[in-house]
Design a protein around this nucleic acid. Structure first.
Lengths: 232, 232
DNA sequence: TCGAATGCAAGAGCAGTGCTCTCGTATTTG
DNA sequence: CAAATACGAGAGCACTGCTCTTGCATTCGA
């Protein structure tokens, strides 16, 4: 009775998946704001109050979607990374960046859910932090691999890092249990910020009337970020 | 009867201001999602339907708040810029960046309104584009001044700009009616993206557990962006 | 195997939302 | 001074998240 789950348990986890699926479908149409429990229930042919057996409230459903989104994006990045020859560090970086943009463009509302304004009233629980850090970790892993292969062009900074930044770089590098130089970690953080800054600006319309078809700017910037990090 | 507005007209524009004020107050508490016309009306001691005499719908009120937010931020940046010796271009850049961050931190919900996820269902009308471009224009003006003073260190790019990017750089420079070199315009766009990427990440919690007190990273990055642009 | 405990869906109901329409009054205009 | 216009109030519609109760189905323990 322990190994195989009871019928009720299987039905339950299946329904949870169906609820999330329907919610995601609705999210992609009307966004987080328009995510209505009643509409989700309607789509599944049940009554809204029944949903509360599976999610305590709307926020809990949102949290589940947020975690799924982080995981999906991270998986996409990791897959794109793996598809490139592992010693081609620049190629891996560019593939990872393009995968990020591709996923964001394909799932704009899910992207907005995790990287856009926090849904007001909603406080992201601790449980979202770990999945969320999978994304930058996937990017930093490329830098670590390059560093450990001795392929990184580590240029000396003309301005020394302030102590706070050194501490923070240490903490970040510790996640990967790697001795990536401080300057490289900070430059990687810059690249990470720039990558998502570009995607956010593009998706949220800030490039309208300036860099509007953002493809050229994106590709060019990704290459410059590889330069910045020191990827060969 | 033309020079001085009628009593009704004065009352009207005054009420519009009061409505926006109350809405802003409510925005700063519960965010765009929680902005309720009924609550605004309640605060003003009127009935919700009366608001529709002044704003056709919720979106129109949001648009007004968005435009005000852009204008407020731009004004803040321009003031910070003016407060620095106009020939101290790096000082002006740093002051402008810090002013941006300061305003965003002081008005997180208004920042989220304009730079966060677009409110779903809400389509930003054309009217928001012009006020929105005042912000990057204010930043680029510093670069233009530095360039026209011959103070800019224009380094040659090792990678040539693709044609699309050259076109877009031309279009951007045209706004300021200035012949800023293409490379400088694109690097300024990078700096602009990085600036708002950092603020967005900081405000929306992406730096949690990594660069969390983001002051050091911000100040350091702002200086590196000044380097990137070539400010003296 | 059978009764108790538990899981579950449904329905009614509450307080709230954006928005529309009507109606009587106040103001402005010709 | 009459006609046109602007306005606030109120009722009402369709919707929301969420709670509580009720009755049925499934699971579990003795």
């Amino acid at each position: 009775m322990n190994a195989s789950r009871t019928a009720r348990e299987r039905a339950r986890s299946e329904l949870i998946s169906e609820i999330k699926e329907a919610a995601r479908r609705q999210l992609s149409i009307s966004g987080a704001q328009g995510l209505s429990l009643r509409a989700v229930a309607r789509e599944l042919g049940m009554v809204s109050s029944a949903l509360y057996r599976y999610f305590a409230n709307r926020d809990e459903l949102l949290t589940a979607l947020i975690i799924d989104a982080y995981e999906a994006l991270a998986a996409e990045i990791e897959a794109a990374d793996r598809a490139v020859l592992s010693s081609d560090f620049r190629g891996r970086w560019e593939a990872a960046c393009r995968a990020t943009r591709r996923w964001a463009t394909a799932h704009p509302h899910e992207y907005a859910l995790v990287y856009g304004s926090p849904v007001p009233g909603y406080h992201a629980p601790e449980a979202t932090i770990a999945p969320g850090s999978r994304v930058p970790t996937a990017l930093l892993a490329i830098v670590r691999d390059a560093h450990e292969a001795g392929a990184l062009t580590v240029r000396t900074d003309k301005a020394p890092l302030p102590p706070t930044l050194i501490d923070q770089a240490d903490r970040i590098a510790a996640v990967l249990a790697s001795a990536i130089p401080h300057g490289v970690v900070i430059r990687s953080a810059t690249a990470w910020t720039q990558l998502f800054g570009m995607i956010t600006f593009e998706l949220f319309g800030q490039y309208a009337n300036s860099l509007d078809p953002a493809d050229a700017f994106f590709d060019y910037s990704v290459a410059r970020l590889a330069d910045l990090i020191g990827l060969p």
